[in-house]
């Protein structure tokens, strides 16, 4: 049953991401991306990592939704996008080689030794508890570094986007709006 589920999910995910890469319609591409991301959470459920599966689901549903918002602004969703870049053999070769290399690097240790588990399953600990214990003991430093990086990104985002946050266009009177537009055009 689990083998069947794994192959079903793996093949679907591969097909969906292929569509994401090849499709010239922005709507098809993004929908395939979202569906693929949601199906990946199925792989986590098969591995009994329920918590990570749900986190994958929630994070990527939101992230791809933001991508849709950009797609809506920049492209005609029902038309096809005219791409200017011609097929480039060197880029293709390098890309495929990198992908093969990465797969090799990540599978080699497991092929040789099997997968040794540094933190074996704790009896009685539920999924989120197990994640929390490992996160706040062994991986505390990477966790804090990631937190600082996110803080930096958040501050940068607020500074970039928040320049004119205090004056809301929808609350201005007609004169104020005109004055604002003239000021902006200068």
């Amino acid at each position: 049953m689990e083998t069947f589920a794994f192959y079903f999910l793996a093949i679907s995910i591969t097909i969906l991401f292929t569509i994401t890469v090849w499709s010239k319609n922005i709507l098809n591409a993004m929908t395939a991306l979202a569906a693929g991301m949601i199906l990946i959470s199925g792989l986590f459920f098969i591995l009994r990592a329920d918590f990570l599966g749900v986190v994958q689901l929630i994070v990527y549903v939101g992230a791809v939704m933001a991508l849709y918002a950009f797609g809506m602004m920049f492209f005609d969703a029902t038309g096809t996008v005219k791409e200017k870049n011609r097929p480039n053999f060197t880029v293709l070769l390098l890309g495929v080689l990198t992908a093969v290399l990465l797969v090799g690097i990540f599978t080699a240790p497991t092929l040789i030794n099997g997968v040794p588990s540094f933190y074996p399953e704790m009896a009685g600990a539920t999924n989120p508890q197990a994640v929390g214990l490992v996160l706040f003991t062994k991986y505390l430093v990477p966790f804090e570094v990631a937190a600082i990086m996110l803080l930096v990104a958040m501050i940068a985002g607020i500074i970039l986007a928040g320049k004119k946050m205090d004056n809301s266009i929808s609350r201005m009177s007609e004169e104020e709006l005109k004055a604002q537009l003239e000021k902006d055009s200068k």
């Binding site: 709507l27 749900v54 929630i58 939704m65 969703a77 999924n127």
Partner: peptide, 27 residues
């Protein structure tokens, strides 16, 4: 599931793809 709440919220969040895709696909 031992993560019931998150699963329900995640699935309901995924449900908003319905209106989003419907609006974008209909020209």
């Amino acid at each position: 599931l031992n993560i019931g709440i998150l699963f329900v919220l995640g699935m309901m969040a995924a449900g908003l793809y319905g209106p989003l895709l419907a609006g974008m696909s209909q020209r």
